[in-house]
């Protein structure tokens, strides 16, 4: 599935937000290190998962890639273009190939807009249809594609359930046949029985349109069903990246191991097999020294607090930023 030329290439992307925004004109001295130098590339046709807890910078990364916010520094290559060098007009034209699905379908749809109008908007903005009748037929086609009644275009968002709304949001994202879709926690606000429907819909659409996804989630089980490759983020940095099998079978970073063991299987038997971390994700203003995971890490020692760990290559597709990769790989809940 993955091809040699990456569709999206992100290099050392950094976004620092000023932390003392209450003072208007004063130069900020403190910064929130939301995204602190991340690099990855996504080949066309791949589903790339970005996993981490709240506040780790995964949604900021998504917004940077879409250029909804501008990065502090870094490089983004998209489809052969220097994505960050595009002017506003050109960006607007190119945006049709890159779309986003947001987490909360209750706030991402305009409550006063009939869904037919909401879905017609992409066609109108990019002037791809010659007549209103054509727009109408494209909207009906879209509704059908995401499993909704094509006759539903005259209804308002509040008339739909959460799962149906997320289908509408997905329809809007795929309206212009994009190459690349960013899905930012697309199922986390949905009920369990509906989550599976949406995951399956995203999988079907991927096959049908040869889509490339950047799939962002806090949940490893959700990511596992869709993604080919997975990157785990902690406090603005990617700590481990590998293929789906490598991350789940032999992950080499203690944080990934902890995330995996925190997943509660629907099985009452192994009640005590959890690695429970101390503390919570620290403030992104004062990043811990050395390895940023060391204050919570179950296997950290004095060295981890001093130097930033190098990238340890575990295979051609798998690396981990940890001094103690071997020890981490042994880390299991007993």
């Amino acid at each position: 599935m993955p091809q040699a030329t990456p569709l999206l290439q992100v290099e050392n992307l950094i976004k620092h937000f000023p932390a003392d925004s209450t003072r208007w004109f004063a130069k900020s001295k403190e910064f929130v290190h939301a995204v602190d130098g991340i690099s990855f590339s996504i080949p066309a046709g791949e589903v790339f998962g970005l996993v981490g807890e709240s506040g780790c910078g995964k949604s900021t990364a998504a917004r940077l890639i879409l250029r909804l916010i501008e990065p502090t520094s870094g490089k983004i290559q998209f489809d052969g273009m220097d994505w960050l060098a595009l002017g506003e007009k050109e960006l607007r034209r190119q945006r049709r190939v890159m779309q986003i699905i947001f987490q909360d379908p209750y706030s991402s749809l305009n409550p006063r807009m009939r869904i037919g109008a909401a879905l017609a908007e992409p066609f109108e903005v990019h002037k791809v249809c010659s007549s209103r009748a054509e727009v109408r037929s494209r909207v009906e086609e879209l509704l059908q594609m995401v499993g909704l009644d094509p006759q539903a275009f005259g209804r308002y968002p509040h008339e739909f359930s959460g799962g149906q709304r997320q289908r509408i949001a997905i329809a809007r994202a795929i309206a212009l046949k994009p190459k690349f879709v960013v899905a930012d926690e697309p199922v986390s606000s949905l009920d369990v029985s509906v989550q599976a429907q949406i995951i399956n819909l995203l999988a079907d659409l991927r096959e049908e349109f040869h889509l490339t996804y950047l799939f962002i989630s806090h949940s490893l089980p959700v990511v596992s069903h869709l993604c080919d490759r997975i990157a785990v983020m902690y406090l603005g940095k990617i700590v481990e990246m590998g293929s789906r099998d490598e991350i789940f079978r032999n992950s080499g970073h203690p944080y990934t191991r902890v995330l995996l063991s925190a997943v509660l299987p629907p099985d009452p038997k192994p009640k005590s097999s959890r690695i429970v971390l101390r503390g919570e994700i620290p403030s992104a203003v004062k990043i811990p020294s050395g390895c940023r995971f060391h204050p919570r890490c179950p296997i950290a020692d004095a060295h981890c607090a001093e130097a930033e760990p190098p990238v340890e290559t575990l295979s051609a597709t798998h690396w981990s930023a940890c001094f103690k990769v071997n020890e981490a790989a042994q880390l299991t809940a007993k």
Partner: peptide, 8 residues
């Protein structure tokens, strides 16, 4: 319908 996965 539950997406589940356990280590390994």
């Amino acid at each position: 319908s539950l997406p589940t996965v356990t280590l390994g």
